[in-house]
Amino acid sequence: MIGALLVMIWLLVAMLLLLRRSQAVEVVPSGSPDEAQIAHHLLLDASPTPLVLVSGTTVRTMNRASRLLFASDDRILPPPSSLFDESATHLRHAGRNWRADRVEVGDRSVVALIDIEAEERTAEARASAEMIQVLGHEMLNGLVPIVSLAECGVAAAEAREGDSALLGEILTTLARRAEGLRRFTEAYRELARLPPPLRLTVSIEEMIDDLARLFASRWPGVHLSIDVQPGLCGEIDRDQMNQAIWALLQNAAEAVEQGGVPSGRIDIRATAGDDVLIIEVADNGPGIPPDCAHTIFRPFYTSKAGGSGIGLSLARQVVQAHGGVLTLLEPFPTTFRAQLPGAAALYGTGSVF
């Protein structure tokens, strides 16, 4: 009887313990925060962009891409010093250049590393495809009438009683079309074979004054206003920069003339700030339509009658070769801004060319 009583007491205690455990277990419903966190973690891990978490002096990987990049499952040792600099926007790791996009989360930072070289390769491939498309279009547009005129010339030559003047007219038109195609090819070669800039300390004021004299002889009816910071110099290739600024001035003058502006005006301004040379060219022409703003720098694109579509593309290529950027600051009034590294205000010191 004592044994049976002990067994009954043991069973009762066991049942009470099981009852308490069942009450303590929390059933997780569908769509709960736990499942949402799991889904979020899976999406984060599948992201192709390396993500790292910066907390104090510790850097940890956050997804598969960052673990592969830094060959670490958790802490990154040693961490790149650029990750601790909140003002740093780029870093170099594993032989590649990365752009660091930072998001502050409390006292920690989540940094996304963007492969700049991959972006550049994509942009180059897109630019090459556009260039091939433009070249193919222009070459076909030039060759089709040449072929047609040549066939007409052959037919006129074979006709025994044909008009001899007609053959001469056909050949003249044929030569003119062939010459136009040759000029297009030369323009493309000029754009594609731009040499590296030869940097020297150049007086920006003297360079723009020289351009102003040429501008006055070419467009006497357009007023050119010049505002250059006194003693401003830049480390540039003067010949190439002359060509780039002249292309901007020519673009502005043609816009003013073709826009029918009664009192055409172009403003050119040059200043320096934080070792950066800034040159702006603005005009009071009709402006650039919003749907054309993204295509104006495309090679051989032009909206002007008789335009080659080379000037703005060449100007941007020259500025980029100097490590700078050329942008359309405002579509109306049309304002272009070139920013180039290496500028200073010199007052009678140094060698200036």
Score class of each variant (00 low, 15 high):
residue 122 T to V: 09
residue 85 D to F: 08
residue 313 S to L: 05
residue 187 A to T: 08
residue 212 A to I: 00
residue 8 M to Y: 13
residue 287 G to I: 06
residue 132 I to S: 10
residue 330 E to C: 05
residue 168 G to M: 06
residue 154 V to K: 14
residue 102 R to C: 03
residue 197 P to S: 08
residue 139 M to V: 15
residue 275 D to Q: 11
residue 249 L to N: 00
residue 22 S to I: 07
residue 65 A to D: 05
residue 238 R to S: 12
residue 231 G to M: 04
residue 260 G to Y: 07
residue 51 L to Q: 13
residue 156 A to N: 03
residue 4 A to N: 11
residue 42 L to Q: 13
residue 245 I to F: 05
residue 130 E to R: 12
residue 94 A to R: 11
residue 151 E to Y: 11
residue 333 P to R: 00
residue 233 C to R: 07
residue 50 P to T: 03
residue 147 V to E: 13
residue 207 M to Q: 11
residue 52 V to D: 07
residue 56 G to D: 11
residue 38 I to M: 14
residue 268 I to H: 01
residue 257 E to H: 13
residue 89 T to E: 13
residue 299 P to N: 02
residue 325 V to C: 11
residue 192 A to W: 09
residue 14 A to S: 14
residue 237 D to G: 07
residue 180 G to Y: 05
residue 258 Q to M: 11
residue 30 S to A: 14
residue 334 T to R: 12
residue 191 L to E: 05
residue 118 A to K: 08
residue 281 V to A: 04
residue 127 A to L: 07
residue 55 S to A: 14
residue 350 G to K: 03
residue 17 L to M: 14
residue 79 P to T: 04
residue 346 L to R: 15
residue 230 P to C: 01
residue 92 R to I: 12
residue 134 V to P: 02
residue 161 E to D: 15
residue 132 I to P: 01
residue 37 Q to K: 12
residue 252 A to H: 01
residue 305 A to D: 12
residue 314 L to M: 15
residue 83 L to E: 07
residue 177 R to Y: 07
residue 191 L to R: 09
residue 37 Q to G: 11
residue 130 E to P: 00
residue 131 M to A: 12
residue 249 L to V: 02
residue 21 R to I: 05
residue 322 H to C: 03
residue 128 S to K: 15
residue 1 M to I: 13
residue 152 C to P: 06
residue 70 F to P: 03
residue 279 I to A: 03
residue 270 A to H: 01
residue 253 A to C: 00
residue 85 D to E: 14
residue 214 L to K: 12
residue 184 F to P: 00
residue 213 R to N: 10
residue 196 P to N: 08
residue 295 T to M: 12
residue 15 M to K: 12
residue 114 I to D: 09
residue 188 Y to A: 15
residue 104 E to F: 08
residue 243 Q to P: 01
residue 148 S to G: 11
residue 79 P to I: 04
residue 187 A to V: 02
residue 218 R to C: 02
residue 109 S to V: 14
residue 109 S to D: 13
residue 137 H to M: 12
residue 296 I to R: 03
residue 248 L to T: 04
residue 42 L to E: 15
residue 122 T to N: 09
residue 33 P to F: 10
residue 40 H to K: 10
residue 235 E to R: 14
residue 348 G to H: 02
residue 232 L to E: 02
residue 154 V to S: 15
residue 350 G to T: 00
residue 269 R to V: 00
residue 228 V to H: 03
residue 70 F to K: 03
residue 13 V to G: 11
residue 3 G to L: 15
residue 6 L to W: 14
residue 166 L to G: 00
residue 59 V to S: 06
residue 120 E to C: 04
residue 217 S to I: 12
residue 117 E to S: 08
residue 285 G to D: 01
residue 143 L to N: 10
residue 183 R to I: 09
residue 148 S to A: 13
residue 114 I to S: 09
residue 206 E to H: 11
residue 84 F to M: 07
residue 263 S to T: 06
residue 237 D to N: 05
residue 213 R to C: 05
residue 136 G to T: 02
residue 79 P to V: 03
residue 144 V to R: 15
residue 216 A to P: 01
residue 340 L to M: 09
residue 312 L to S: 09
residue 290 P to D: 08
residue 148 S to Y: 08
residue 227 D to V: 01
residue 252 A to F: 04
residue 327 T to H: 03
